[in-house]
Simulated assay, not measured.
Amino acid sequence: MELLNDMALFVEVVRAKGFRGAAEALRIPNSTLSRRIAVLEKAIGLRLLHRTTRKIELTEAGQIYFERCKRIVDEARLAHEQLGEMLAQPSGLLRASLPVDFAVTYLAPLIAEFANLYPGITFDFDLTPRRIDLVSEPFDVAIRMGESENSQLIARPLASLQAHLYASPGYLERSGEPRTPADLERHECLGMLKAGSGTWTLQDGTRTTQIRVGGRFTLNSVGMVRRLATLDQGIVLLPEEIVADEMANGRLRRVMPEWHGKPMPVYAITETRLLPAKTQRFIEFLRERLAQRR
């Protein structure tokens, strides 16, 4: 790479017909440019230039070397420009696994914006609850919520979502409104609970407490949890991004606003760090947009 850089400097010196003009065009010191050409001559074992106080002239070997360097440098510059265009407008099929409810509720507008920015990309999304295998299945990326499970995969953090407590006006009218974490033990609590019971970790900025909660429903669907909450079936602990629509239309409202759950990380999971442009742009776009919405 250093040899190619010195070849490019040599071409600029010849085209500018001197060190001063080339140094001004390249915005580097004249002495640095002269030293780099001397290093190049030593590296290839050829005298390329006759130097005088007024001008430079190519030696016979320098003329031959200049023609070859010019072709190599021009081809490298063209390849760099083409690569830049490819990175600016990536194309191809992007296969991604997305968390169902977060994708439908929150990511859909971002995905539509991304699709408009990059018309050359087509999409194949898997929104099933299953955990796809990035090693054996042809997916480019998986968006996951919660702690990363497989340390052998590459997890790139996108955002951290804050979970809060929500309930419907109907449920609160019927069952009363909890005021402290301990009050939740006598309420119907909806969540990803095992065997109808589980533990919620709540924080209020200075304190952290764990409350054992339970309910009549055992679920593995965030969408169903949210829907049952709007139907007056209990209290949920979910990120605001998941219940934004229900909050806007009044079907859910926040309870115990001073308390919140542990931050829930959102990751982009890939098998490798070497990503095609389409995948790299998708991850960068989601990270930027999710950060703007915080």
Rank of each mutant, 00 (worst) to 15 (best):
F123W: 11
G214I: 00
F19Y: 15
V222G: 11
V222N: 08
V100T: 10
A25W: 12
T272I: 07
L202H: 13
Q280G: 12
D74T: 09
R130C: 02
T59D: 01
T32W: 10
E149Q: 10
A8L: 07
L190Y: 12
L4C: 06
M264W: 12
A167L: 04
R144Y: 00
E288C: 07
I269V: 15
R273F: 04
I28M: 15
A25F: 11
E185I: 12
L94C: 00
L158C: 01
T199M: 15
Q82Y: 03
V13A: 05
E185W: 08
Q233C: 14
P29E: 00
G84K: 13
G176I: 04
L9D: 14
P257V: 05
A142W: 03
A291W: 11
E113P: 05
K278M: 00
L4H: 08
R27H: 14
A61M: 09
A167T: 08
Q280I: 06
A268E: 07
R207C: 11
F139I: 02
T201P: 00
A38M: 11
L58F: 05
L161F: 10
L33E: 13
A22I: 06
L33Q: 09
A142I: 05
R131I: 07
M192T: 03
V213A: 10
R15K: 15
L165E: 02
E67I: 07
A61V: 05
E147H: 08
I121C: 10
V213D: 00
N30Q: 14
S97K: 11
L98C: 02
D183M: 09
A38L: 13
A103N: 09
H260R: 14
L290F: 02
V39Q: 13
H260K: 11
D133S: 11
A96Q: 01
G198D: 02
I143K: 00
A115H: 08
A142P: 01
D204C: 04
L58W: 05
E75S: 06
G215R: 11
T201I: 14
L33R: 09
A96Y: 00
N249T: 06
V14A: 06
L87H: 10
I132S: 01
F19C: 10
V100M: 05
M7E: 14
D126E: 13
E85G: 05
Q203V: 12
D6I: 05
M1Y: 14
R77W: 10
T59Q: 03
L158N: 02
M247S: 07
I235T: 07
F217P: 04
R47Q: 14
L274E: 15
R179A: 15
A22H: 06
W259T: 01
S34V: 14
D204Y: 03
E271F: 01
